[in-house]
Design a binder for these strands. Structure first.
Lengths: 186, 186
DNA sequence: CATCTATTGTACCAAAAGGTACAGACTTAT
DNA sequence: ATAAGTCTGTACCTTTTGGTACAATAGATG
């Protein structure tokens, strides 16, 4: 039979989009095969563990992306102010200005939470921690920085919920703009 | 056969909890019958439209609760400061200090969003609007009040996501505490 | 007590679910 | 070119899904 896809990693973005759109339960194998163009044979070849393994793989890829594009820059840069603004740029692009759902957040609210609890917890923990460190560099006190980091990550998630609920991406964009203004210590 | 439940409204809270825990797709009829103690016969007698009608009924009940406990008090009171703090009290209790998920928010992120789009949009729209009006009464300018109301509702939703993701209800409680401090105009 | 309507349990259904088995075909290294 | 290993389509399986049909029964009403 024809070999169409050479890399397992090639289909992860597609899988991610499917799970974002349909959730874990809602993403049936028939939907997945249509979206990826892969039959069950290939799918179970790449992911012997079925849907659960697919989601785990997608979560790992997402975490990898944020690690590279967000967390590491926040940790390593000398210019914390610039790094934080770069984070907001990345977030704005990643979530397509509020039109794309956060898979990690959506899974956190679903009944499958327990299955992916580790990955979900890790993602947010690392985000809040690295962001708090960067805010400290800008002159915020330790507790201030922690609180502000929490406000920001939580604001992003809330913004996504509200934007999606209202079908109005500007809500998300406004939320990001406001958070940007709260970066500098008073 | 035995008649155990006399009121359709008696089972709405149970249905609400089931959908909160399992989501729309995840809440199978077998789960629903177990949780409510009602057989399919009764279920389809009360909700001829099946699961979709159940969720619509639950959403209507939720909206009714918020209308009574939150939106109307925000609209009608003279003491806006008190009304807003009462809102936070109600929210804290309703979401069990962050251990209970917001069904409306969860549905907004799921693929069933379109089916319940109207109810979801209405809920948040009314919340932000009434809250903004109350903030105006406290001396915030119109745009300030609108922005702050958005921040608050979005902060509540984001707090729920993060609390659930981290399995740490204190995140939600802290979020509410911080929002309370931002009520007074500067 | 007879009747009528609101409930309820049971049996049933077709469709879709996730998953397995496997033979065949394509690549690649030899 | 041939063997080894990687992919892929098809057929099939069991279980569960949401939903229907309907007869039986309970309580209310006269």
């Amino acid at each position: 039979m024809a070999r169409l896809v050479s890399e397992r990693s090639d289909i992860l973005p597609v899988l991610g989009e499917v799970f974002r759109e349909h959730g874990f339960e809602g993403a049936s194998l028939s939907i997945i095969t249509k979206a990826t163009g892969l039959g069950k044979g290939s799918l179970y070849h790449f992911f012997p563990g079925g849907k659960e393994e697919m989601v785990q793989a997608v979560l790992a890829e997402i975490h990898g992306w944020f690690e590279r594009e967000v967390f590491e820059p926040l940790e390593k840069t000398k210019d914390a102010d610039k790094a934080i603004n770069t984070m907001f740029d990345a977030v704005l692009k990643y979530f397509n200005s509020g039109q794309r759902v956060c898979l990690v957040g959506a899974l956190a609210l679903s009944n499958t939470r327990d299955t992916f609890a580790n990955a979900i917890r890790q993602y947010f923990k690392r985000w809040v921690m690295t962001l708090a460190r960067a805010l400290e560099k800008l002159g915020h006190s330790k507790p201030e920085a922690k609180a502000l980091a929490e406000v920001m990550v939580l604001g992003i998630q809330g913004g996504l919920v509200l934007a999606r609920a209202s079908n109005d991406a500007t809500i998300f964009k406004r939320a990001i703009k406001r958070l940007r203004l709260s970066v500098k210590p008073t």
